[in-house]
């Protein structure tokens, strides 16, 4: 998450002080990614150092008001214009765990998959419940939060589907070679390929 660009984007709307920026950010994202006020001020200091914001001094109530410079406005516009670049491929603990589980001896792969599926399903239930409850209020100010929830729902749904896919691949493999149980031995080339398959087919969240 780019705190730097989020603050620049909020300053596009109007000049603001640190606490206002934090409140606006959290209100628009449903407090999903809480911001530490210290992190906000550190980021503002760096933005000022880089010439992207300037401060107007104290507003009389003890608040230091920040506004965008023309370079800052351009940086904010560029942020919206450019797609988010994922690191290639994103480091994904779950994909790494599964890839190791299928290639190491003594790991019950089905149990690993099921434990994750239950946890992911619980998250999906919670997100869905929160979305239902929020949508029932039918308030325009909830739009941003509902979109964040949708993102969480789609991401978690993709993760569950990928887990289903992993399980069916493992079952396929064990059916093809009944002598080879789901608990694996090191150096198994078919399983090395399977680990590659798992990593490259993962469409879940970061």
């Amino acid at each position: 998450m780019s705190v730097r660009h989020s603050l620049l984007a909020l300053l596009q709307e109007q000049p603001r002080y640190g606490y206002q920026l934090r409140a606006e950010f959290e209100q628009r994202t449903g407090s999903t990614w809480p911001l530490n006020i210290g992190q906000v001020y550190t980021t503002l200091d760096r933005l000022e150092r880089d010439g992207l914001v300037t401060n107007d001094g104290d507003d009389g109530d003890g608040h230091v008001i920040y506004r965008l410079t023309s370079s800052g406005a351009e940086e904010a516009r560029n942020w919206f214009a450019k797609p988010v670049a994922a690191t290639n491929p994103p480091r994904n603990e779950l994909a790494i765990k599964l890839a190791l589980a299928v290639t190491l001896p003594g790991v019950d792969v089905q149990a690993v998959i099921q434990a994750q599926r239950s946890a992911s399903m619980r998250s999906l239930q919670d997100y869905t419940k929160a979305r239902r409850t929020t949508a029932a209020h039918d308030r325009p100010e909830d739009t941003a939060w509902l979109l964040v929830l949708d993102s969480l729902i789609y991401g978690t749904e993709a993760e569950v589907r990928w887990l289903d896919h992993c399980e069916s691949r493992m079952l396929q493999l064990s059916t093809q070679n009944a002598a080879r149980p789901l608990t694996r031995s090191v150096g198994d080339s078919a399983l090395g390929a399977e680990a590659d398959h798992i990593i490259h087919n993962h469409g879940g969240r970061k």
């Binding site: 619980r122 869905t128 419940k129 239902r132």
Partner: peptide
């Protein structure tokens, strides 16, 4: 999964046995 997520409880079944269950949190804020 997206439809099962509307439920209070998900029961996972495999080979004719219940292997796990997941319950939604009572407090979505959590």
């Amino acid at each position: 999964a997206r439809h099962a997520a509307w439920s209070d409880r998900v029961v996972f079944i495999r080979d004719g046995r219940i292997v796990d269950q997941s319950e939604a949190a009572n407090d979505p804020a959590s």
